[in-house]
């Protein structure tokens, strides 16, 4: 962690640029929240993408993941990967919860086989 990683440590200037970048991203995400974007999904995607970009900047530079051993990066990623598992599989239930086989994905009733001509 110390010896060979030492020489490419970030300087105060790097830190300052990262801070400026973070503040610009903050302004962007606040601005995007006031745009009239149709559909809630897109607003959410934009907000979370910017949040991930900010988190990445913090982790890579402020928390030195970029300058540390690969092991550290793996440890840092593990928590987020597992959170991804939790959210994805929980969402797999919530997204499909209210359309049983009798409805299509729009919630319209699905018809009996005899209603389909040609089957």
């Amino acid at each position: 962690m110390t010896t060979e990683a030492q020489h490419d440590q970030p300087t105060s200037r790097t830190y300052f640029l990262v801070l400026v970048g973070l503040l610009i991203l903050l302004a962007l995400t606040v601005g995007a929240a006031f745009l009239k974007i149709p559909g809630h999904t897109w607003g959410m995607i934009i907000a979370l993408t910017i949040a991930f970009a900010k988190a990445l900047l913090i982790a890579l530079y402020f928390m030195h993941v970029k300058f540390s051993h690969k092991q550290v990066a793996a440890f840092a990623a593990a928590g987020f990967v597992w959170l991804g598992i939790l959210i994805t599989l929980t969402a797999s239930d919530y997204i499909t919860r209210n359309h049983p086989a009798s409805m299509n994905y729009k919630g319209e009733p699905r018809y009996l086989q005899s209603d389909y001509p040609g089957r």
């Binding site: 995400t29 606040v30 995007a32 929240a33 006031f34 009239k36 974007i37 809630h40 607003g43 959410m44 907000a47 979370l48 910017i50 949040a51």
Partner: peptide, 9 residues
């Protein structure tokens, strides 16, 4: 911050 404050639509 974005989760609580910015998902206004």
């Amino acid at each position: 911050f974005p989760t609580l404050y910015l998902l206004r639509h």
